[in-house]
């Protein structure tokens, strides 16, 4: 499976405040088609800025100061994301690359039924679709993520946190994108619900073949679900390797620190001095 989907070269983002902050510093990475890439690091390390930056979702004072991002479309075209104009970029987003946002549980509109929020995606990106078709697509999506088509008329507050998160995944899946960027998608959920959602993401990925960039500071979780993991610190990727090698043979000192900073479920006692 060596077919690149996204090539990021020498990518930098600076927050142009006083003094300027280089949030992402000369990042180069290649995402493979169908791969789950974990992006790990502490708050403020630049992982979210990087993920937003490659899709050009950042607002001033953030400035992309160097680098290029090329999306290798399934059609065979290479799309240089830096060269698209506003309208081309609008069409590109969500169609090819979608996102499940941080705090997605609260990202839904509280005064609109979830069905109509899902229909919005088709209204904007598939303007020729009939209302009947849209409703059918939404019903299918809600079935795929196991929320159930009959919940289309529910409001967000009538759903549990886990179900709201599934609705967000359904929304990200709507246009069958080739890449889904997930920013802390399960952080607010309890372990059982978290595990269920991860299973579902994995299933959908096998079924639809999209790649995932999974952003979190929860390294134990990332180790279990990623093919490869990039460890970020102060805007740089300090180590990038397969999950297994990050776990068994970390090269960078910071990676080692991160690995030793979480208590192991079944490991030796004594990490908390008692």
């Amino acid at each position: 499976m060596n077919e690149p989907l996204l090539s990021v070269r020498d990518f930098s983002v600076v927050y142009d405040v006083d003094p300027p902050v280089e949030a992402v510093s000369h990042v180069t990475l290649e995402l493979q088609r169908g791969e789950v890439l974990g992006l790990a690091g502490e708050s403020g390390c630049g992982k979210t800025t990087l993920a937003y930056g490659v899709q050009r979702l950042l607002k001033a004072p953030a400035v992309i100061t160097s680098g290029s991002v090329v999306f290798h479309d399934a059609s065979g075209d290479d799309v240089d994301l830096g060269a698209l104009d506003a309208e081309q970029m609008r069409r590109f987003r969500w169609d090819k690359v979608s996102m499940v946002f941080q705090g997605a549980m609260n990202a839904l509109n509280p005064v609109a039924p979830i069905g109509s929020q899902l229909e919005d995606v088709f209204e904007v990106h598939r303007p020729r679709m009939s209302a009947r078709q849209r409703r059918a697509e939404v019903a299918e999506l809600l079935e795929i993520v196991k929320v159930g088509a009959q919940r289309a008329r529910s409001f967000p507050h009538e759903l549990s946190g886990g179900m709201r998160q599934r609705v967000m995944i359904a929304m990200a899946l709507a246009l069958r994108p080739q890449l889904m960027v997930m920013d802390e998608p399960t952080t607010a959920l309890d372990v059982l619900v978290q595990r269920e959602i991860l299973r579902q993401i994995s299933q959908l990925r096998h079924e639809f073949g999209f790649s995932v960039i999974f952003i979190t500071h929860d390294l134990p979780l990332l180790l279990e679900i990623s093919d490869r993991i990039a460890i970020m610190r102060e805007g740089e990727i300090v180590e990038l390797d397969t999950a297994e090698r990050i776990w068994t043979d970390p090269q960078n000192d910071y990676t080692k620190t991160l690995l030793s900073s979480f208590p192991r479920l079944t490991g030796e006692r004594g990490v908390v001095a008692r």
Binding site: V36, V191, L198, R199, S202, D218, P220, L221, L223, E224, I225, S226, D227, A243, E244, W247, T248, R264, L265, T266, G267
Partner: peptide, 16 residues
Amino acid sequence: SPDPESFFASAARDLG
């Protein structure tokens, strides 16, 4: 619960 220790010890990976 995430448990990399047991996860990498066992060959069966049902996720990712």
